[in-house]
């Protein structure tokens, strides 16, 4: 849903996927059976959104290549098209039906109830039903780490956050980020801006650039952009002003090498691949599967493109914080939980 920038796979990812693929291939010798069919319904962003949907698409392609499954990718056209698409896939008895994006939650809930014989997977939202698995990501944990990285790399003592559309999901990023900044340096200030309140906010690079220039002018020297394709405007501003930006969802370090400090990674491609691999072996999960720091479902990106600007010392501190979070020694505030208790 977020940051729609094309990511290049880091070699590590390739290895991980290869490894998972090999495991899958060894474990499923039944090549004679009818092909295992996976239907994937992307949301309005479509497979070329260079971010969330693109990641799902990539995971599906990997699965097709490595696991020998057949995939059918459908792209939602409007808010009402997901439901008939999910229903058509269920009618055609697809072995696994994956819905990408929280906007499909209502549709999945409804269709899953009508097709108890089909199995559904929903990414980025939770639906509780016996034939639905929900894939959730612990974005706030990774946001905490990039917040630390931002604060530790800042020379001015001010860092920025630019959110796309003002929705709870992005508030979750913001809250984790702010906590990470304060954890690293309690004196560092955070300047926060949101691009807008409509879907257009995901796709407005000029506005992103404008906000980023204003934040840089206000003294910030590192800006985290959780704003979809709008983020590219933030990267432009970073290059223009010779400051730093942080990417989101996919690895965007390569977009403006030397100006993208790191990227928050949300590995939907891994999650989709793993879900398909499991299902092919007959493992259909229900309930919520959470991807967090522990399984690299979320992380921050270190590669050759940011090696020169991201210091080893900062990486070491971030990794130490990661270990502390995993050990339960550091608690990262979760906007979802706070919002529920309100």
């Amino acid at each position: 849903m977020l940051c729609r920038h094309l990511s290049r796979l880091v070699p590590i990812l390739v290895l991980v996927v290869l490894g998972a693929g090999l495991v899958g291939a060894v474990a499923t010798p039944s090549a004679l059976a009818a092909p295992f069919r996976v239907g994937i319904v992307l949301d309005k962003g479509g497979k070329d959104d260079k971010s969330f949907n693109a990641a799902a698409f990539k995971g599906a392609q990997e699965a097709e290549k490595k696991l020998g499954v057949t995939t059918k990718i459908l792209e939602g056209r409007d808010d009402n098209s997901a439901e008939p698409m999910l229903r058509s896939l269920a009618d055609k008895k697809f072995d696994l039906i994956i819905a990408i994006g929280f906007s499909q939650a209502d549709a999945v809930k409804k269709v899953a109830a009508q097709y108890p014989g089909s199995h559904f997977v929903l990414a980025d939202a939770e639906v509780k039903a016996p034939n639905v698995e929900s894939l959730m990501f612990e974005e706030h944990q990774a946001a905490f780490l990039v917040g630390m990285i931002a604060a530790l790399s800042s020379k001015t003592g001010k860092v920025g956050f630019i959110g796309g559309m003002d929705i709870p999901l992005i508030r979750r990023f913001q809250m984790g980020y702010e906590a990470g900044v304060k954890h690293a340096n309690a004196k560092t200030q955070v300047i926060v801006n949101y691009v807008g309140v409509t879907g257009e906010a995901w796709n407005n690079p000029p506005k992103g650039k404008e906000l980023a220039l204003a934040q840089y002018a206000g003294g910030a020297d590192v800006i985290f952009a959780a704003a979809g394709a709008t983020g590219s405007g933030v990267f432009d501003a970073a290059e223009e002003k010779k400051k730093l930006a942080i990417g989101c969802d996919s690895n965007q370090n390569w977009v403006k090498p030397g100006f993208v400090l790191t990227s928050l990674l949300k590995r939907l491609d891994l999650a989709v691949f793993k879900t398909i691999a499991d299902a092919k072996q007959g493992i259909y999960k229900t309930g919520t599967t959470r991807y967090g720091l522990s399984d690299q479902g979320v992380d921050f990106a270190v590669d050759e493109f940011n090696a020169k600007i991201l210091s080893k010392d900062v990486i070491a501190k971030a990794n130490a914080a990661k270990a502390a979070i995993l050990a339960g020694k550091v608690q990262v505030p979760d906007y979802y939980k706070l919002a529920h208790t309100k």
């Binding site: 929280f102 939650a105 939202a125 929705i167 709870p168 999901l169």
Partner: peptide, 8 residues
């Protein structure tokens, strides 16, 4: 605002 979902 909707309190039971994160859709806009």
């Amino acid at each position: 605002p909707s309190l039971d979902s994160q859709n806009p």
